[in-house]
Amino acid sequence: MALDRRAVLGLAVLLLLAVGYAVQHFWLGRPEAVAIPAAVAGASPTVAPVPGSGGDPSASSSPAFSPPGPSGAAVVVEVAGKVRHPGLRTLPGGSRVADAVSAAGGPLPDTDTIGLNLARLLTDGEQIVVGAPAGQPPPAAAGSKTLLSLNQATAEQLDALPGVGPTLAQRIVNFRQEHGGFRSLDQLRQVSGIGARKFADLRPLLTL
C-alpha cells in the first residue's frame, strides 16, 4: 500500500506540472494589441520624387512652358522701289523688313539695300522703299523738284503725273511687275496708252 501511495502522489505531481506548463504556454502565446505611435499614425505616405523634378513630389517631369515669340495680327505693307514685284504684301505679325522684301521677289540686281534696316519689325500700313538713299524719304510726286522714280513710285504717285490718271498708272505698275522693273525710261513707251507726245511730257519728270 505504501508503494501505491507514492506512485499515486508522483503521478499527481507530474499532472500538476503538466497542467501548469500548459497554462503558462497558453498565456504567453495569446495575441496582444499593440499601440501605434502618434508620430507614425499622423505621418503621410511617402511619395518618391519624380525624376527631373528636383525632389518635389508635386512637380511634373513634363517640359516647362515657353512663351511664344512675338506675334499678333497680320500686317499689310507696301513694298516699293527696286524689287521684282512691288505692291501690297500681307505678312504674319512679327515679320521683319527682310521678310517683306523677300515677299516682293527680292531686290533688283545691283540694288543697294544699305538704307534699309532689314531686321526691323514691320508695322501695319507702312511703306518700304528698296533702293532709296539712306535717311531720305520716298520720292515725291510730280509738281516737286524731285524726279519720280518709275521703279519706286506707287500707283497713287503715278496717278498724280500730268495726263496719266488711275488707269494708266495701274498699267505702268503692271508693266513694271511683269518685266521686273524698268531698265530705261524709253521702256515707258511700251506701256499701252503712252504715245510719243505723252512720253515727251513725262520724261522730264521721271527717273529710274
Rank of each mutant, 00 (worst) to 15 (best):
Leu206Ala: 10
Arg120Leu: 02
Asp99Thr: 04
Gly115Thr: 14
Asp99Cys: 05
Gly193Thr: 14
Ala196Pro: 06
Gly135Thr: 05
Gly193Lys: 13
Lys145Ile: 07
Pro92Cys: 01
Thr113Ala: 12
Asn151Phe: 03
Asp112Leu: 02
Leu108His: 02
Asp186Gly: 11
Arg89Asp: 00
Gly180Ala: 08
Arg176Val: 07
Phe199Ala: 12
Leu121Tyr: 07
Leu158Thr: 09
Ala155Lys: 03
Phe175Val: 02
Ala74Pro: 07
Gly93Met: 02
His179Phe: 14
Gly165Lys: 13
Lys82Gly: 03
Ile128Cys: 01
Leu122Asp: 00
Arg120Lys: 11
Gly87Trp: 14
Gly106Cys: 11
Asp110Leu: 12
Leu161Ala: 06
Thr207Ser: 11
Ile194Asp: 03
Pro166Asn: 15
Leu116Thr: 13
Leu150Trp: 02
Ala155Pro: 11
Asp124Phe: 05
Gly93Arg: 02
Ala103Asn: 10
Gly125Ala: 14
Ala141Val: 13
Ala140Arg: 14
Lys198Leu: 15
Val101Glu: 03
Asp186Phe: 10
Gln157Ser: 15
Ser184Cys: 04
His179Gln: 13
Ile194Leu: 04
Leu118Ile: 09
Ser149Ala: 12
Pro166Gly: 14
Lys198Ile: 10
Gln157His: 04
Leu188Gln: 10
Leu205Tyr: 07
Thr111Phe: 01
Ala155Phe: 10
Gln177Thr: 14
Arg183Lys: 14
Ala104Gly: 12
Ser184Ala: 06
Arg203Ser: 09
Ser184Asn: 09
Val129Thr: 01
Arg176Trp: 05
Thr123Met: 01
His179Met: 09
Phe199Trp: 08
Gly135Phe: 08
Ile114Val: 07
Gln127Phe: 01
Pro162Leu: 04
Val129Ser: 00
Ala80His: 00
Ile172Trp: 04
Gly165Leu: 13
Leu121Ala: 03
Gly81Ser: 06
Ala132Met: 02
Phe182Pro: 08
Leu148Asp: 12
Lys145Arg: 10
Pro107Gln: 08
Lys198Cys: 05
Arg120Glu: 03
Pro139Lys: 06
Leu158Asp: 11
